[in-house]
Design a protein around this nucleic acid. Structure first.
Lengths: 224, 224
DNA sequence: CTTCAACAACCAAAATTTTCATAGATGAGT
DNA sequence: ACTCATCTATGAAAATTTTGGTTGTTGAAG
C-alpha cells in the first residue's frame, strides 16, 4: 500500500511520513504542488495526502488536474482551518475526505484506512446478474457474446437495477438518483427507459427480465 | 428579517431564539421535523436553522422536501459532530452552510448574516447587458419586445457571458463550469453553441455581439 | 362479473445535445 | 505578400433525451 504525501511544511511532512511508515505504508513525500501532480499522475499510489496551501501550485488545482486526467486515486485533503469554503470547493474538485490541522494520529490512520479500503473493493468494472453483464466503462450490456451499447440514462437505470437485484426500486428513487431530488421529471420518463431496456435485453437474448411492481417501481429478475 | 429555528433540544432552541431576537431578528421555533417542514413551506423565512437529528422527520429529509418544492430559503444545518458524511449529504441535499455544535454566538450570527445577505442580493431574475435581457426562469433572451427561447446549454453559455460582460471567457472555463472539470467535451462544442447564440441574437435584432478571441475564447460586447 | 379509474407500455415525434465534415479565417514565419 | 498549420464557423446528421398521446392492464368497488 503506497501513499503520496504532498506537504510543504517540512516538519509536518516528516511527521506524516513517519506515522505512515510505522504503520506499514510505503510513503513518498514531495514538497510542492507541481511535484505532487507529476508524482500523482504516475497512478502508482493508493492514497494521496494533499495539503491545500502549497508553493508553486495550489492543492485544489493539483486535485482538479488529477481528476481531469481520470486519475481516481482517493485524496485526503489537509486543510489549515475548518473552512467550509475550502471544503465545498474540495468536494467540487473531487476530494474524498478532509483532515483539519492539527489532527490526531488515530484519526489520520482511520481515514487513510477508510479511503484505501474503498478503493480495494473496486476490482472489476462490470456488474453481473443472471446471464447479463453491465460494463461500467463501455456502457455496454452483454449476454453470452451478444452486446448492445446503452445510452447514459439507460445505463444509469440499469446500473441501479443490477446493483440491487430482486430489490424493488421505486420510480421516485430512480428520479432522485439520476436527475436529482429537485427535478420535475415525469414518471413516464422512467417507463420509457424501462421500455428501451427491455427491448435491448431481448435483443441480446437475455433471460433477465425487468419486472413491474404496479404503483411502485421495478426490479430485476433472472427468469431461468 | 425572519428566521425559523427547527431544534428539538428545548434548551438549545431557547438559546438560539434568544440570541437571534436580541439581534433584531424575528424568530419562530418548532421542535420537530414535520412542523419544521410545514412552517418552512410557507416561504416566509429569510433563513432556517435546521438541526439534523430531529424527532418525527430527519433534518436532511426536511431539507430535501423543501428543495423539492422549490423553496430556496437559505438553510444553516446544525450538526452534532463535524461528521463529514453528514456534510456531504447536506450539501447534496441543498444546505447552504453548516454549524457544528457547540458553537460561539459570534459565529452563529456571522453565518446567518452571510446567508441572508446572499439572498438579499437576488432581486431580479433577469440579467441585462446592452439591449438584451436574459431571463433566468424562462430561459429566454429578449431585445425590445422580441423573444427567443434558449435551450439549457445555450442558456448556460449565455449566462456566463452576460454575467461577465466584456470579460474574456476561455473555452476551458465554459467547459469546467457547464460540463464539469472531468468531462472530455471538445472545444468545437462551445463553438457550435456560440454559433447558435449568434443566430438567436440576430433573430431578436440585438446589437450585442459575441466577439471571438482567437485561441482563447469569447466575450460579449454591446455593438452600438 | 362488470365498470371504472389509475397505471403502465409503447410508439412517434419533438427538442436538445453532440459529433462530424468541410469551408473559411487568421496570423506567424518565411 | 505567400504559405501553411491552426483555429473557427457552420450546416447537417447522428444520438440522446424528453414529451405527448393512444392503447392495453390491473385491481378495487360496486
Amino acid at each position: 500500500m503506497k501513499i503520496l504525501v504532498v506537504e510543504d511544511e517540512a516538519a509536518l511532512a516528516e511527521a506524516l511520513s513517519e506515522i505512515l511508515k510505522r504503520n506499514k505504508y510505503l510513503v513518498d513525500a514531495v514538497y510542492n504542488g507541481e511535484d505532487g501532480l507529476s508524482y500523482a499522475l504516475t497512478d502508482l499510489y493508493d492514497c494521496i495526502l494533499l495539503d491545500i496551501m502549497l508553493p508553486k501550485m495550489n492543492g485544489l488545482d493539483v486535485l482538479r488536474a488529477l481528476r481531469k486526467q481520470h486519475i481516481s486515486t482517493p485524496v485526503l485533503l489537509l486543510t489549515a482551518k475548518s473552512d467550509i469554503e475550502d471544503k465545498i470547493t474540495g468536494l467540487d474538485s473531487g476530494a474524498d475526505d478532509f483532515l483539519t490541522k492539527p489532527f490526531a494520529t488515530g484519526e489520520l490512520l482511520a481515514r487513510v484506512r477508510a479511503l484505501t479500503r474503498r478503493k480495494g473493493e473496486v476490482i472489476t468494472d462490470e456488474f453481473t446478474y443472471g446471464d447479463i453483464a453491465l460494463n461500467k466503462s463501455t456502457f455496454s450490456l452483454s449476454c453470452e457474446g451478444e452486446f448492445v451499447k446503452l445510452s447514459l440514462k439507460e445505463y444509469q437505470i440499469m446500473e441501479i437495477l443490477i446493483s440491487n437485484p430482486r430489490q424493488l426500486i421505486s420510480k421516485e428513487r430512480f428520479i432522485e438518483k439520476i436527475w436529482g431530488y429537485e427535478s420535475d421529471i415525469e414518471y413516464n420518463n422512467i417507463e420509457v427507459y424501462i421500455s428501451f431496456l427491455r427491448k435491448k435485453l431481448s435483443v441480446i437474448g437475455s433471460h433477465v427480465t425487468i419486472r413491474t411492481a404496479r404503483g411502485v417501481g421495478y426490479f430485476l429478475e433472472s427468469g431461468v
